[in-house]
Amino acid sequence: MWLLLDLKGEKGFLTGRREEAFQEALVRAIRPGMRFWDVGANIGFYSVLAGRLVGPEGRVLSIEPDPENAERLCAAVERNGLRNVEVVRAALASREGTMALERRGAMSRLRESNEKTAGAEAISVAVFRLEKLAERFGAPDVVKIDVEGAEIEVLRGVGPLIRERKPVFLVEFHSEELLGEARKLFADYALDRIDQDHWRLAPENVFPGRTLC
């Protein structure tokens, strides 16, 4: 695949040896014709991979609020000739409106517009709920979420359309507290560990008895 990389911090994308267990989990979860959502798409590594996996009959919704990342993401989609990938320049949370995207180096996080952090650059970004996107694009089959600690806020945006579809979620959790919140939100889902920080949330009848580690 073609990606626009900063080799100072993104060599793992160049070699492919980045989150290998997570890559394998993604490949296992996606089938041709599926709808895949990449929440926190960054520069497009997983969006491009998923675009190939879902094939011409499938769709990828690639969601990224950071303008610089979104530009590189769009370049990757175009250079790889992926007509089945659509980019949404926005953030996801449990409510809608606008919030401040705070950038500190390569990391970013959402905060309230009136909240300030010393030494951090911030820009205003549009914020949607997962359910709102489902109303516009149709509910997804597989959702990957990696948003620097705000994953639970994204999951709180799930509503009836997505619940009825029962998608598989591939999510990064950095603490037991966040993992516990996920268990409460999706009591009817099984949680399987993929690697140290990544988990698969899937309905109990999906891949019964199978774990990824």
Rank of each mutant, 00 (worst) to 15 (best):
E68F: 05
P67M: 03
E71N: 08
G58Y: 08
R72T: 03
G81Q: 02
G81W: 01
D66T: 05
E57K: 15
N69T: 05
E64L: 02
R59F: 08
V48N: 08
C74L: 14
E71I: 10
L53A: 04
A50G: 13
C74K: 15
G40C: 05
G58H: 08
S47N: 06
I43L: 13
G55H: 13
G55T: 13
V60A: 08
D66A: 07
G81F: 00
V39M: 06
C74Y: 06
G55I: 12
G51I: 10
G44A: 04
A50N: 11
E64A: 02
C74N: 11
S47W: 07
L61K: 10
E64M: 00
L53Q: 02
P65G: 13
I43V: 15
V39D: 06
R52N: 14
A70G: 01
I43A: 01
N69H: 14
L73Q: 00
V48D: 07
N80Q: 01
S62C: 06
F45S: 11
F45K: 12
N80R: 02
P65V: 09
A70M: 00
N42W: 04
Y46F: 14
G55M: 11
G44V: 02
D66P: 03
P56K: 14
N69Y: 07
G58Q: 11
R79Q: 12
G58F: 05
I63G: 14
F45V: 11
A41F: 07
G40M: 07
L73P: 04
L49C: 05
V60Y: 04
G40I: 07
I63D: 11
L53C: 04
L73F: 04
G58D: 12
R59K: 15
R52K: 15
G51Q: 10
L61V: 15
G51R: 09
E64R: 02
L53G: 03
E57A: 15
N80L: 01
G40F: 02
A50E: 12
E68L: 10
L49H: 03
R72I: 03
V39G: 01
I43W: 02
L53N: 06
V54C: 13
A76S: 11
R52W: 12
E68V: 14
S62D: 05
R52M: 12
F45P: 07
L73D: 03
V60F: 06
Y46R: 04
E64T: 01
G44Q: 05
A41D: 11
R72F: 00
V77G: 01
V77C: 03
E71F: 05
L49A: 06
V48M: 10
Y46C: 04
R59A: 12
P56Y: 06
N42D: 06
G40Q: 06
V60P: 07
E68K: 10
N80C: 00
N42V: 03
G55Q: 13
E78H: 10
V60T: 11
G81D: 04
R79T: 09
I63H: 11
Y46L: 09
I43H: 00
S47F: 03
L49V: 13
V60L: 05
A70Q: 03
P56Q: 10
E71V: 14
E68M: 07
E57D: 13
V39L: 02
G44I: 01
